[in-house]
């Protein structure tokens, strides 16, 4: 039943993420970072850790501008391994021709979810000497995808027949200035066609609650599933790294004090505990559709985090798993 439509293109893809969001229960997504080498088993190994615990997993697109297996190939491998993919696609490396081509390819092979974003600048990657494309921006890419799907047209106006039918996602960072503008910025992406949005890591719940209250005031939580980013900080080095080296992540002082305040051998546990508490708080915030767990390479810890947060295994997992193993 999942990821069906590859055949005639007429049947809308009903992915489990779409169904989970429609059902109104708390959804869980995670992340699969593709390998740098040509290892066909690498994705399956990560998928094995997540299967049954997540509704879908993002497959990143050359994340942080570092060369990896493509998110398209990675998404197909994840599907074969029984985890529904969210194919990420950025504007950094492709112009509008390549972007639309990749989107059609994804639809044709039955990838049910896409996550569209502008992307990190090559300056931060392993090829800082690369040409940054940025032909269109992330909002325009969302709008392009929506037009391809709902109007059956390319940016040029040419017909796309049959039209694709993915669930369209985007990202937002509630913690980056201008903070009072961030919900309106998400509203803009929703107007462009985004049906779900994953956020940057939520460490500061005060700022996040204010963001969600703006989101509710604008009414966008009714048409867009807001999935909050979370993750365990398991060492002081990781804390140092994410709070100083990664653009756009905000770690509040209280959390820094808490992690610094425990003996060195307890930091990992404390980081897990903080992550669990944040998920528990998120389940109580109105308008939050779920959690997006980014585990910094600690994917094997995800089931424990979810279990302790009371989120648990995915309900209709057995039923939904049947059809997801094929790539058209």
């Amino acid at each position: 039943m999942t990821a069906g439509a590859a055949g005639n293109g007429q049947v809308p893809v009903s992915g489990r993420l779409r169904r989970a969001l429609a059902s109104g229960r708390f959804v869980v997504t995670a992340e699969i970072g593709p390998p740098r080498g040509a290892d066909p088993a690498a994705i399956a190994k990560k998928a094995d850790l997540l299967r049954g615990w997540v509704d879908a997993a993002n497959v990143t697109d050359n994340q942080s501008a570092h060369v990896r297996l493509s998110s398209f190939a990675g998404s197909l491998l994840a599907m074969n391994a029984g985890v529904e993919p969210v194919m990420q696609l950025t504007c950094r490396d492709r112009n509008r021709i390549a972007l639309q081509s990749d989107l059609i390819s994804a639809a044709t092979l039955g990838i049910p979810n896409i996550l569209l974003l502008t992307g990190d600048h090559p300056r931060f990657g392993d090829h800082p000497d690369a040409k940054a494309v940025f032909d269109i921006d992330g909002v325009q890419l969302v709008w392009t995808a929506r037009t391809m799907r709902d109007q059956g047209r390319l940016l040029s106006g040419r017909r796309v027949d049959p039209a694709p039918h993915w669930l369209i996602g985007t990202v937002e960072n509630p913690f980056s200035p201008p903070i009072s503008f961030r919900a309106r910025r998400l509203a803009k992406k929703v107007a462009a066609g985004a049906e779900f949005a994953q956020t940057q890591f939520v460490f500061d719940l005060d700022i996040f609650e204010r963001f969600m209250s703006d989101v509710r005031d604008l009414g966008i939580d009714r048409t867009c599933g807001v999935i909050a980013g979370v993750g365990p900080v398991r060492s002081l080095r990781a804390l140092e790294y994410i709070s100083t080296k990664v653009p756009g992540i905000h770690v509040p002082d209280a959390m820094i004090r808490r992690l610094r305040g425990v003996p060195a051998d307890r930091v990992a546990d404390e980081g897990m505990q903080i992550c669990v508490e944040i998920i528990q708080r998120l389940t109580e915030i109105s308008g939050v559709a779920g959690a997006h767990v980014m585990a910094f390479g600690y994917e094997r810890g995800i089931p424990e985090i979810l279990e302790r947060a009371g989120v648990g295994r995915r309900p209709d997992h057995a039923a939904a798993n049947e059809g997801s193993g094929r790539a058209g």
Partner: peptide, 29 residues
């Protein structure tokens, strides 16, 4: 630097600096 026509990216620093050129303010801010 990302040629955004629709508002700021998510990398604006807490002090309002551009993610790519940290010595200047984000033009969208």
């Amino acid at each position: 630097p990302k040629q955004l026509r629709n508002g700021p990216c998510g990398g604006v620093s807490p002090t309002g600096m551009c993610e790519v050129n940290p010595d200047v303010r984000c033009v969208w801010l």
